[in-house]
Amino acid sequence: MYSSKGEVCITLQKQEDSAKIEVKDTGIGIPKQHLPRLFERFYRVDKARSRSMGGTGLGLAIVKHIALMFKGNIYVDSEVNKGTTFTIFLPYMKTNRL
């Protein structure tokens, strides 16, 4: 969560062919113009604040690459002063059971 106050809710849902992981917070939100670049390495929305909080701009890029490695995807929806929701879809692995 990108805020010193607020709540975080994590949910996991089984869908037809994938697992849906949702991470939702009630933080400060992210302005819409930053959303397209949010998953880029070293990209930070508020450079001064991120530095003071220890952010490097790598976390979301790593999450995206992990999701893609498992043939999944990640999406973000955010509203300033309301919060942010990250949704990750990971396909189920098909295994042969005895």
Rank of each mutant, 00 (worst) to 15 (best):
M1Q: 12
Y2A: 08
S3H: 05
S3Q: 12
S4H: 09
E7H: 12
C9D: 06
I10K: 09
T11C: 11
T11I: 05
L12D: 04
Q13E: 10
K14R: 11
K14H: 04
D17N: 15
S18T: 13
K20W: 04
K20S: 06
E22R: 04
E22K: 08
V23K: 00
V23W: 00
V23M: 15
V23D: 02
K24E: 15
D25K: 00
T26H: 01
T26L: 01
I28M: 13
I28P: 00
G29F: 00
P31Y: 05
K32A: 12
K32S: 11
Q33C: 15
Q33W: 10
Q33L: 13
H34E: 07
L35H: 06
R37Y: 15
L38H: 04
L38S: 03
F39L: 15
E40R: 08
E40Y: 12
R41L: 07
R41K: 12
F42P: 00
K47M: 09
K47H: 05
K47D: 11
S52M: 08
M53V: 12
M53Q: 10
M53P: 03
G54I: 06
G55M: 08
T56E: 13
G57Y: 00
G57W: 00
L58P: 01
L60H: 06
A61L: 05
I62D: 05
V63C: 10
K64V: 02
H65G: 05
H65V: 06
H65W: 02
H65D: 11
I66K: 06
A67M: 14
M69Q: 08
F70P: 03
K71L: 05
N73V: 02
I74L: 04
Y75M: 09
V76R: 01
V76E: 02
D77H: 10
S78E: 01
V80N: 06
V80Y: 07
V80A: 05
K82V: 15
K82P: 03
G83A: 14
F86G: 00
F86R: 00
F86V: 01
T87L: 10
T87A: 06
I88C: 08
F89K: 11
L90W: 03
L90C: 07
L90M: 10
P91M: 07
Y92L: 07
Y92Q: 04
M93L: 13
M93G: 09
K94Q: 08
K94R: 06
T95N: 09
L98Q: 13
L98S: 12
L98T: 04
